[in-house]
């Protein structure tokens, strides 16, 4: 633990945060463009070439909006809630390996902020704490709609964390390690890969619900709960929630890339670290496009359907999958 190590980690943290925020900004543009194409529209095309300046325009607008704090609000919690959301959304990415180790200045630098030995648990924990942001936001707004939105968020998060946790446990059981690096580089025979990919559609569905994406975007529910927990938020505080949602989405896609599709691995990736980062970004981006495709295809569920979907379908499936993985691991 010398000062160069600290320096390297600091640089990596700054790099990742900038990349995530940039990814968030341009993900909003990609989403609007792609959803537009799904609906036979063009999408934004006025701000700069290919609307590349649109996120900047949005950011400037958000920053210069009037800051309104509702008189009913619990001010400290009200201000804290978006910070909690964004903070834990950003910190969840810390354990994701986004590229192979680089050799720079005579030392080996792993492209991963922290290779902690409980990586998967860490991500689950950060996701869990991030939920507090939404719940506290709804509670501190002093508004019934926000409170209802927050209640629904809590119920949804708790319900879907169960199948998610069990799927993750199955993957951990198959790989025999909790670190994301280990899960990514574990050697599997072909039938284990196949068995792993069986879980992908289910895990993807559960992650849709965990990241509050359509068709499970119940915390927002624009047309039923007037944006749920964030009704009373405007300007940059609203943008922070938005940011947290997208960063959660990016992290979820990155974790799926690492767990199911070999992370940064690809032809020649070990020789050229930049190529590894490129593969990682490409795979993550394809999964993000899948998120958008799903959003364009399905209407929002009813609330009781959401609950029964989790408890009556996803939970049993995840338990069966866990049992199957256990049998495979023991027998083979």
């Amino acid at each position: 633990m010398d000062w160069t190590y600290l320096l390297i980690v600091t640089v990596e943290i700054i790099f990742v945060i900038v990349a995530l925020l940039g990814g968030f900004a341009y993900m909003t543009l990609v989403e609007r463009k792609v959803i537009g194409r799904f609906q036979l529209r063009i999408g934004p095309n006025q701000a700069g070439p290919y609307a590349l300046l649109q996120p900047i325009a949005d950011a400037v607008k958000m920053i210069f909006k009037e800051e309104i704090i509702v008189s009913n609000a619990d001010k400290v919690v009200y201000m804290l809630a978006p910070a909690i959301s964004v903070g834990f959304a950003l910190s969840a990415f810390a354990v994701v390996p986004f590229g192979p180790a680089v050799h720079l200045f005579g030392r080996e630098i792993p492209l991963q902020i922290a290779d902690v030995n409980i990586g998967v648990l860490y991500i689950l924990a950060m996701g869990g704490i991030g939920t507090y942001g939404l719940v506290l936001a709804g509670w501190s707004s002093g508004n019934n709609y926000s409170l209802l939105g927050a209640m629904r968020t809590t119920a949804q998060m708790v319900s879907y964390e169960l199948p998610m946790g069990i799927f993750v446990a199955s993957v951990v059981l198959g790989a025999g390690t909790l670190t994301l690096n280990g899960i990514m580089s574990v050697q599997r025979p072909w039938y284990m890969w196949l068995w792993l990919w069986v879980a992908f559609p289910f895990y993807f569905t559960v992650m849709l619900a965990e990241t509050n994406r359509s068709p499970f975007d119940f915390p927002e529910t624009e047309n039923e709960l007037i944006s749920g927990f964030q009704t009373e938020y405007g300007g940059i505080k609203f943008a922070l929630f938005f940011m947290a949602e997208y960063i959660n989405m990016i992290t979820a896609a990155a974790v799926m890339t690492v767990v199911f599709f070999g992370g940064w691995r690809g032809p020649l990736a070990a020789q050229f670290p930049l190529l590894g980062i490129f593969y990682f970004v490409l795979k993550t981006f394809i999964i993000l496009l899948l998120f958008l495709w799903v959003r364009a295809s399905f209407p929002r569920l009813r609330y009781d359907q959401l609950m029964s979907f989790s408890w009556k379908l996803m939970l049993p499936i995840s338990l069966i999958y866990l049992a199957g993985t256990a049998v495979l691991v023991v027998l083979v």
Binding site: V34, G36, R37, F38, Q39, L40, R41, W293, A296, S297
Partner: peptide
């Protein structure tokens, strides 16, 4: 269905 729509040119 949505994929088929997406690969068409936009109507705008």
């Amino acid at each position: 269905v949505t994929f088929k729509e997406a690969v068409q040119p936009p109507l705008t």
